[in-house]
Amino acid sequence: MTIFIDILSALFLAGGAFFCLVGGIGLVRMPDFYTRMHGASVTETLGAGFMLIGLILQAGLTLVAVKLAMIGLLILFASPTATHALAKAALRSGLKPQLGKQPSDDEVTPSKP
């Protein structure tokens, strides 16, 4: 039973490591600021989440697991707020997003000053 939990935990840790790396690669590869945020959000949701689940599996039903869950909740509640604040501030300061190549009607330019 313990070996099964160990393998599951290792799988989750490997998944978390993979998604963290993907987020980092996205942060470097993407062409402009707004698209880079999407790359970073992969690190913050799936990367962090999988890694914390892997650690919780190793900790078992202890206070350590509760603290790990608290860290996870903190990331899930706080990181979207910081991301939203960054995106809003960037748009307000006049940073124009680079939009897709093919033109279409649903693109809007922000009307706020």
Partner: peptide, 8 residues
């Protein structure tokens, strides 16, 4: 990188 960023 097949991305097509949009504002909706």
């Amino acid at each position: 990188m097949p991305i097509s960023p949009t504002m909706v």
